[in-house]
Design a protein around this nucleic acid. Sequence first.
DNA 1: TTCTGTGAATAGGTTCACAGCT
DNA 2: AGCTGTGAACCTATTCACAGAA
Lengths: 206, 206
Amino acid sequence: MRKISDSTIRRLSLYLRFLEQATTQGRTTISSGELAKLGGTTSAQVRKDLSFFGSFGKRGLGYTVPELASRIRDILGLQRGYRVVLVGAGRMGGALVQYQGFKQRGFHIAAIYDQDARKIGSRWNGLVVRDVRHLETDLKKERSDIAIVATPADSAQQVVDRLVRCGVKAILNFAPVPLAVPPDVRVKHVNMALELETLSYALANR
Amino acid sequence: MRKISDSTIRRLSLYLRFLEQATTQGRTTISSGELAKLGGTTSAQVRKDLSFFGSFGKRGLGYTVPELASRIRDILGLQRGYRVVLVGAGRMGGALVQYQGFKQRGFHIAAIYDQDARKIGSRWNGLVVRDVRHLETDLKKERSDIAIVATPADSAQQVVDRLVRCGVKAILNFAPVPLAVPPDVRVKHVNMALELETLSYALANR
DNA sequence: TTCTGTGAATAGGTTCACAGCT
DNA sequence: AGCTGTGAACCTATTCACAGAA
């Protein structure tokens, strides 16, 4: 399959969000121009993004809302659900566990792990924090494709190594460190200080 | 000033992180190749990124660690500190308040606001959650350039409108909605469900 | 010899513009 | 008439490759 840019994938996620909103508003059809306006882009961009995967619209009419939503879910692989394990029961971990946005999109946090004896056994949003030592045995019983790493920086790499050995293929990393993984494992970094720094740059240069 | 791409700015932030790490390790000099390896890019990319702002290295030698760090801090506007206000004292807000990465980079969370009477008055990491009604009067007394919005989706736009009226020029938004702001105000979106969706796409297409 | 700085070449992403359905 | 789908044109970012300083 042709290489699709990350920006295209991110925009598709956005379009999907707008389509879901349009659905709750009872809209049945939507044009590339409307999606573009919502997403802060152009109609040509929307059509191009979609064209990499097929032609889902009707000329003169636009796109059928539920159909396009379903197609985008297919493209993004969201029709299946994902078991997600979360390592690191700090504040960030706690915020992520109860974040509704994950569940809504089919990402189900199945377990939380931590090292800290004081946290192990405590309940987070109905889930009991487990000792990270159980990671391997648990993942052998029930595989996970996706892990969220929200540990301190200095234990992130070691946790990731273990996750990779357990067959985890995608990692959302909140620890502010680069991670080494085999080429078949995908890592996405979320670094909030870095985001603020881009804002700082924008403020300093006007 | 020539328009610099967002990717360049993000990479500079990364380089800065590596330079700080190198400093604690007592390194005095570093090459573009080393920075590239740490940042998962190429030496040419590192040199090009820096070249937009000047020539900070010595041929045959590399870059002086503390000097380059200082230069990048200048470029990013990090030599000054920022007062940051946070609106939304939910789980995410709580995680952000105590996140050390902000303070380390000079982003000082000066106040937290919420609507919910049950949250108002409670302490978060030494800060008392204030009634969001005080936003205007507080910001008139002490201006802020940057705000973090971690409210539910349906109140985000209204909060942003008020922040903008109070002179806030940059917003880090955690609410999963597009925000309308005047052209001189910068908005950065953090959307963790969207990040997971890019991972889902990667998993579905191998 | 080593490593930077930078024009030139290449690759990649976005916008244009229009043919083709409905 | 309205809106999609898409090749071509354009623009931006990355990589190459090499001259030049330490």
